[in-house]
């Protein structure tokens, strides 16, 4: 394994193009949460030509719907949700300048194609490690769609948020390569 690469959004094309599948990343700075219902609304805004609730250029979106924070906590448990449910919305967001996505599980071919075209990267965090991941989040506030509850868009500040590059902008796929390596026929 290579050494850990530190990254802070907004990400440039150059930042993205030096990442390869299997790279271990430490994210620091601001990322935004969005899952199923928020994606639907974001794409509706794009279709109408309206402004998005945050600057998406160079941004990283985290697919998560946290548990409510207990009093005194920044956020509740906050592990990644399954990414393929966002696939149909993703190319439209990438075309607006989204550079990174964090989730769990693999992506569909239309997303991988759009990632190559728009120069973007997909990271995976450990699904089901929500209590651990909460410790990497230092601030959390709702910036849009408060009515969606856990599905609202939150602005998160993160410190040493640990992810792995699962799909890079060259078409690399860690899921395919990893499974092929350990498969026993």
């Amino acid at each position: 394994m290579s050494q850990v690469i530190s990254l802070s959004p907004p990400l440039s094309d150059e930042d993205v193009m030096r990442l390869r599948i299997g790279d271990e990343i430490s994210l620091n700075g601001v990322i935004y949460t969005a899952r199923d219902a928020a994606h639907k609304r974001l794409v509706e805004l794009i279709d109408k030509g309206q402004e998005l609730p945050f600057d998406i250029r160079g941004a990283i979106v985290y697919y998560v719907g946290p548990t409510p924070a207990k009093p005194g906590e920044v956020i509740g448990s906050a592990g990644p949700t399954t990414s393929y449910r966002m696939d149909s919305y993703t190319p439209a967001l990438l075309a607006q300048g989204l550079k990174g996505m964090i989730g769990k599980g693999n992506r569909g071919p239309e997303v991988l194609e759009a990632m190559k075209k728009e120069k973007a990267v997909y990271f995976t965090a450990v699904g089901g490690a929500g209590a651990l991941i909460a410790d990497w989040i230092t601030s959390c506030g709702v910036i849009a769609y408060e009515d969606l509850g856990a599905e609202a868009i939150h602005r998160l500040e993160v410190k040493d948020f640990q992810v792995v590059v699962a799909n890079d902008a060259y078409g690399g796929d860690l899921f395919k390569e990893g499974i092929a390596r350990y498969r026993k026929d």
Partner: peptide, 15 residues
């Protein structure tokens, strides 16, 4: 994660 969740009575997973 399991150790942290048990110690703090925090949800193991957000789901």
């Amino acid at each position: 994660n399991a150790r942290i969740a048990k110690d703090r009575t925090a949800p193991l997973c957000q789901d």
